[in-house]
Computed example of a mutant assay.
Amino acid sequence: MPDEVWEQFVRDSERDIRTSGAPKEPSARARMVTERLRQQEARGELPQGWRAMPDGQRAGGRRDRRRKVWTAVAVVLAAAVAVVAMKPSLLPGDPFGTDSAAGSGADSGTGADAGSRSAAPLPAETAPETAAPGAVPGTPTLDDPFAGSPAARYADGAAGIVLPRAKAVGVFSKDQVARALEQSRTLLVESNIDRGTLLGATPEAVFDEVLDPRQPELVEDLRSWLREPGEDRDPLRMFSRFDPDEVRLVGDVVRTRGRTTFEEGRDGALEIHTDYTFVYALAPADPDATEVARTIVRRVIDLRMGDPAKYRATPGRLAVVSYDDDIGNSACFTHDGFLHPGLAWSDATGAPPSGPAVDPYDRSRDIGGDSEPDACGTVSRT
């Protein structure tokens, strides 16, 4: 065996022993194997070039596989970094404060409202708001009817009625409370969001599934008011309705924001409090008209499910304890059972608004308690 070949073999063997973590001094078996290989080499019994195995193969496939795995991970990380660099708001919580449009009053969406959805929708309201929302630039159009309105960031329709988690209250189980909360949601949806109701139909589900028939004064009054509205018989106290001969709804959604809470009342009753604002986009009934207006309706309704053993109540139905409303942009002192938004072409004969202007989007203020009985206020925006 040439000396340089033998020296290379020794160097390779020592290196492999060091990297394997084995003792630096070759064992007796290793020395025997080395001597046997040297003798077989001298007799020509080993194939030519048996020491010429490439380094990559001698190291084995595991290191190569590990290198490939880390290469793939590096590619994925690089792609993720590139995506975040282009849109940092994808990170939870927006740690870099990149969602600058969040306070602009727009949110994201599809269809006719897509233009006003340039910022994320507001989170669900879980506590009373502390101030009115800021000014929002923009002008409503048929394609973007909520532009220039805080409602651009409100939820769509029933999605804005987020119910609290149910729990047992008073004499009622968790399941009974959950059902009552769903009934309160049905009342709000059928009265203020359902398209049939908005165009003048009677919301039968309210009477058939929610309201307690053993509260006849209210139930019978509401049905009568819907049939024959008048000054003291106004269905708008509970229902949102528009005259389809006068206006048409723009788009497919009503924007909704508010909250529902509940607690135990007297004698173990379940008391449900609802406070919601509904924003409607409207245009003249003439299909060629392009003017867009908005009407804002805020409703505060208190409901009760009483223990039939202590209350004159129907099991599984809700009684209305109180209701109040605040309507922005509708003709004053009209009693035909419809809301009449202010439009340039309108010839509504209602009394002109008077009194101090209020912001119909300001959910931090109470409604009803500080207004004059015959007041017809103005709104600061629609």
Rank of each mutant, 00 (worst) to 15 (best):
A285H: 11
R11G: 12
E220Q: 14
T19H: 12
P284R: 08
E14H: 09
T260C: 04
Q39G: 03
T260R: 02
G306I: 11
D324V: 07
D156S: 08
D325R: 15
V171L: 00
D221M: 11
D326F: 15
R18G: 04
P150W: 01
E4C: 01
G49I: 10
P341H: 07
A151R: 05
L46D: 02
A101Y: 08
R381G: 05
T290F: 02
L181N: 05
D324M: 10
A281W: 11
D336I: 06
V76D: 00
H273A: 14
R294T: 10
P229F: 03
E14N: 09
A106I: 01
G109W: 09
E372P: 02
E25A: 11
D12T: 13
G115T: 10
W225L: 03
A319E: 13
G111K: 04
Y154V: 06
T260M: 13
A59G: 07
E14I: 14
F262V: 06
D307M: 05
P315I: 03
P121R: 14
V76S: 03
P360V: 08
Y154A: 11
D55R: 11
A79S: 12
R317P: 09
V177A: 11
A112R: 12
S322Q: 12
P145Y: 07
S322K: 12
A85K: 03
P23R: 07
F96I: 01
P26M: 06
L303K: 00
R214P: 00
L181E: 04
S322D: 07
I193T: 04
V33A: 13
R62Q: 12
T98S: 14
E231H: 06
L46A: 03
A158C: 00
P287Q: 00
G268N: 06
P145C: 05
T314W: 01
V73R: 02
A82T: 14
S149L: 04
S20L: 12
E231A: 14
P244W: 08
D113I: 10
S364R: 02
E129Y: 00
R241T: 13
G337R: 04
A351I: 09
A331E: 08
